[in-house]
C-alpha cells in the first residue's frame, strides 16, 4: 500500500532577506493509504505550506516527502508525476477556472497527463459524477455557474486526475450550509468508492470531528497534536491555548458535565451527544 511519509520537513520563506520566515519546522509524520486526515491550525500556523509540499509545489528547505516510497523531489519527472498522485485543491479553487466550457476545464488535468479521446471523456464524466456536477452543464461556461457549482467543477478538475491522495484546503469556505454539507458528502463518498487518502484542511471543528479519523493540529510551524478526534478534543485547554476551539457538541457536553449531567467522555459530534443524552435514565422516558 502506498503511503505518504514526511521526514523532518522544514520550509523557510525568503531565506536571506529581512522577510525571512520559517513556516514549518521539522515536521515528521506518516499517513497510510485510505486514511481521512484533518489538518487544523489557525491562520499562519503552516498548514498551507505543509500541504504544498505534499505534491512538490514547494521544495523543502530541508527534509523530504515520500509517496509510495519514492522521494517526490528526486527528479523533475517525479515532481511532475506526484502532482497527479497527490491532487491538491486550493482554497477558493473556483478562481482557477479558465476554460470556455465546464467539460474542458475538468479535462485540463487528465489531458496534461496525456489522456485524450474516449478515455479522457470517461474520466471527466466520472469526476463530474463524484462531485454532483450534472452533465447538462458540460457545455456551459464555468464563469456563468453559481459559487457552489464552480467550486464543485474545480474539485472535479483535480479528482479527474485520479489522485491516490486528495488534499483539500478549506473546501467549504464561503459556502452556505447546504453547499458545505453537499461538498463534504461528495468527498466522503469519493473516498469510500476509490479508497483514496483524503487530507482536509479546515477551520471548522464540527466538520473535522464528523469526517476525520485522525486530526493533526499545527501551531507555529510545529505539530501540536496528532491523534484521533477523541484524543484531540479531549484537550480543550490546549486547543484554546493555540486559538482553536473544540466542536460545539464537545463544548456543550463539557458544560453539561460541569452542571452535573452524567455524560460519558469522547463526545464530539452532535449525533454522539444526542445519543448520550437519550441514554441518560429518565430522559428517554419523556
Amino acid at each position: 500500500m502506498p503511503e505518504l511519509r514526511v521526514e523532518a520537513l522544514t520550509h523557510v520563506y525568503s531565506a536571506g532577506t529581512p522577510f525571512e520566515k520559517t513556516a514549518i519546522e521539522n515536521i515528521s509524520l506518516t499517513i497510510p493509504q485510505g486514511q481521512m486526515v484533518g489538518v487544523l491550525g489557525h491562520t499562519g500556523s503552516g498548514k498551507s505550506t505543509f500541504i504544498q509540499h505534499l505534491n512538490a509545489l514547494l521544495r523543502p528547505s530541508s527534509g523530504a516527502v515520500y509517496y509510495d516510497g519514492k522521494d517526490v523531489n528526486a527528479t523533475k519527472h517525479s515532481r511532475r508525476e506526484v502532482k497527479a498522485q497527490v491532487g491538491l485543491v486550493f482554497q477558493y479553487p473556483e478562481y482557477q477556472l479558465f476554460e470556455e466550457t465546464v467539460f474542458r476545464d475538468i479535462a485540463f488535468g487528465p489531458k496534461n497527463q496525456g489522456l485524450d479521446g474516449s478515455a479522457l471523456e470517461a474520466r471527466v464524466r466520472e469526476a463530474a459524477a463524484f462531485v454532483g456536477v450534472d452533465e447538462t452543464l458540460f457545455e456551459r461556461s464555468p464563469l456563468e455557474l453559481s459559487g457552489g457549482q464552480k467550486r464543485r467543477v474545480a474539485i472535479a478538475g483535480v479528482i479527474a486526475m485520479r489522485p491516490g491522495v486528495l488534499v483539500l484546503d478549506e473546501p467549504t469556505a464561503g459556502l452556505d450550509p447546504a453547499g458545505c454539507r453537499q461538498i463534504l458528502d461528495n468527498i466522503q463518498s469519493y473516498r469510500e468508492k476509490t479508497g483514496s487518502t483524503v487530507i482536509l484542511v479546515s477551520h471548522n471543528m464540527d466538520d473535522a470531528a464528523r469526517m476525520c479519523e485522525r486530526l493533526i493540529v499545527f501551531d507555529h510551524g510545529h505539530i501540536a497534536m496528532d491523534g484521533t478526534p477523541e484524543e484531540v478534543f479531549a484537550r480543550p485547554e490546549e486547543m484554546s491555548a493555540i486559538s482553536l476551539s473544540v466542536p460545539h457538541a464537545a463544548a456543550l457536553a463539557m458544560a453539561l458535565r460541569r452542571k452535573g449531567v452524567p455524560l460519558p467522555g469522547a463526545i464530539y459530534t452532535h449525533e454522539q451527544l444526542l445519543d448520550a443524552l437519550l441514554r441518560i435514565e429518565g430522559v428517554g422516558a419523556c
Binding site: Q52, N55, L57, R80, K83, A84, G87, L88, F90, P93, Y95, Q96, F98, F108, G109, N112, Q113, G157, V158, M161
Partner: peptide
C-alpha cells in the same frame, strides 16, 4: 503565484 500553483497542481507545464 496562487493561480500558477493551482494550474501546476493540475499538471500544467
Amino acid at each position: 503565484d496562487k493561480i500558477m500553483s493551482a494550474q501546476r497542481s493540475r499538471g500544467a507545464d
